[in-house]
Nucleic acid binder design. Structure first.
Lengths: 235, 235
DNA sequence: CACATTAGTTAACATGTGTGCACTGTAAAG
DNA sequence: CTTTACAGTGCACACATGTTAACTAATGTG
C-alpha cells in the first residue's frame, strides 16, 4: 500500500503547466520564494527551515531548487530584497499623496498598519530575521532600515520649524519614530487573526507616542540654538 | 586509526568530577544551559540548534540530556526564566540606589548598557527569541517585558508632576522608553567586540531620545487636564 | 525537420538527528 | 557491608537532510 500524500502545492493550483520556458522558470522560482515565506508564518525561523521543505512546499523535487538558487542563503537574501523594495515603495507612495497636517500622524499610522497587514508574510520574515538570521541577512535588513530612517529624516527636514535642527538631531528623532513603528509592527504580527479592537488600540498607542515625540521636538533646544544663546551670554 | 576529537567541554574545565550527587547533577544541568547559550552566540537561533549539539557542547552524551529536560523546549523556557529574572534583579538594584536627578537619564542608560554587556549571552538569546522563537517562548518573553514596562510606569508615577497622568498614559510613556532600550540593546549586541566609540555613540543617542520623551511628557496635556479645561469652557 | 539547451526528475550517498533500551559505576540509605 | 537509586554511557533504530550524477522530456534554435 503506497501512501501518497501529494500536498496541494502552489504549482498545482495554477494548473497551466505550459507557457514559454523562462515564464515557467519564473513561476517555480516564485513558488519557491512563496513556499519559504509561507513556512515562516508558523513557528519556524528561516535557518530552521530546510531546502527540502521549501522544495516540497513549492511542489518541486529538492534538486530542482538548485536551478534557481545556489543555496538557502541566496533565497533568503532575495526575500530581504523584495521585502525592503516593497517597503520603500510604500514610502514613496505615501510621500506623493501628502496628508492634511491636522490628522497627519493618525493617518500615517493607519495607512502603515494597513500596509503591514496586507503584507503580513514579508513583515513576519523581516521581524524574525532582523535578529535571528545570519549575519548577511541582518546586515541587509539593518541597512534597509537605516535608509528608511534617513529618508524619513529628510522628510522631517522639510517641516516648518525644523530649520535649526542639525542632521544628527533629525536622524535621532526619525530613528525614534521608526522604533515606534517597528514596535507596533511586531505587536501587530502576533495578534490573533481577527482581533480588530486590539489593532485600533495599537494604532492609538502608536499615534500617542508619536505625538509625544512631536511635542518633545518642539521643546527641544537644537544644538545651533544652544550655541547662539551661549554666544549671546558671553557677549 | 580512531580519530578522537574530544572538545574541551565546560564540564572538563572544572576538573573536579566528584562531589555529592545532586551537586554534580546541578553542574551538568548548568553545563547544558550554558552550552545552549554559547551555541546561540553564533549565527544559530534556538530552534536551529539540536539536542545533540547542546549535549556535545556540554561534554555529555545525548541521552543524558533527558535526565534534566524533557526536550529542548523545556530548556528554552528555563533560559527565558533565568534571563528575565536577571533583568528584574537589575531593576530592583537600580531602584534601591537612586541616582541624582540631574544626571538621571544619562546614568541610567550607562548602567543599563553596562549590564547588557556583562550579560551578553542572555540578552542575545532574548533578542533572537523575542520573535524567532516558538509561541511559548515569545509569550514568556512578551509577558516579561510587559511586567518590566509596568514596573517602570509605577516608578514614573512617583515623579513630581506625574500626578495628572492616567495609568494608561504612564504605560504609554514607559513602553516608549522601553522601546528605546530594546532598540539600543539590539544595536549593542551586534557591534564588533572592541568598538568602544560606537558604544558611547549609542549611549548618547539613547539618552537624547529619552530626554526628548521627557520634554514631550512635560508638554503633554494629560486627559484629566483636558477634561478640566473642557468643563471650564462649558461653564 | 534535426539538434541543442535546460527545467525538472529519479536514484543514491554520507551524515546528522531524536529517542528507546539495556548497561555501569558510584553516591546514598539500610 | 550490602543494597538501592540514578546520573551518565553505548548501541541501535528509523528517520530527514544537503548534494552528486545520470536521466527525461519539452522548449527553443538553426
Amino acid at each position: 500500500m503506497t501512501r501518497i500524500t501529494r500536498r496541494r502545492s502552489r504549482r498545482d493550483e495554477e494548473e497551466s503547466e505550459t507557457g514559454r520556458r523562462d515564464v515557467r522558470k519564473q513561476r517555480t522560482r516564485r513558488a519557491l520564494l512563496d513556499a519559504a515565506l509561507e513556512l515562516m508564518q508558523g513557528e519556524q525561523s528561516f535557518n530552521s527551515i530546510s531546502l527540502r521543505e521549501v522544495a516540497r512546499n513549492a511542489g518541486v523535487v529538492p534538486t530542482a531548487f538548485y536551478r534557481h538558487f545556489r543555496d538557502m542563503d541566496e533565497l533568503g537574501l532575495t526575500l530581504v530584497e523584495e521585502a525592503l523594495r516593497a517597503l520603500r515603495q510604500m514610502m514613496r507612495e505615501a510621500r506623493s499623496a501628502p496628508l492634511p497636517a491636522s490628522s497627519l500622524i493618525g493617518r500615517s499610522v493607519q495607512t502603515y498598519i494597513g500596509y503591514v497587514q496586507a503584507n503580513q508574510d514579508y513583515f513576519q520574515f523581516l521581524a524574525k530575521e532582523r535578529f535571528g538570521g545570519s549575519r548577511a541577512l541582518r546586515l541587509a535588513i539593518r541597512q534597509g532600515t537605516a535608509l528608511f530612517i534617513s529618508e524619513l529624516a529628510t522628510d522631517l527636514a522639510r517641516f516648518p520649524g525644523a530649520n535649526n535642527f542639525s542632521t544628527e538631531e533629525l536622524q535621532m528623532i526619525s530613528s525614534l519614530i521608526v522604533n515606534i513603528m517597528i514596535a507596533i509592527t511586531e505587536q501587530l504580527l502576533d495578534l490573533p487573526a481577527d482581533s480588530e479592537s486590539e489593532v485600533v488600540w495599537l494604532q492609538d498607542q502608536a499615534a500617542q507616542q508619536m505625538r509625544l515625540v512631536f511635542l518633545g521636538s518642539m521643546q527641544w533646544k537644537p544644538k545651533s540654538v544652544r550655541d547662539k544663546q551661549k554666544a549671546i551670554a558671553q557677549g
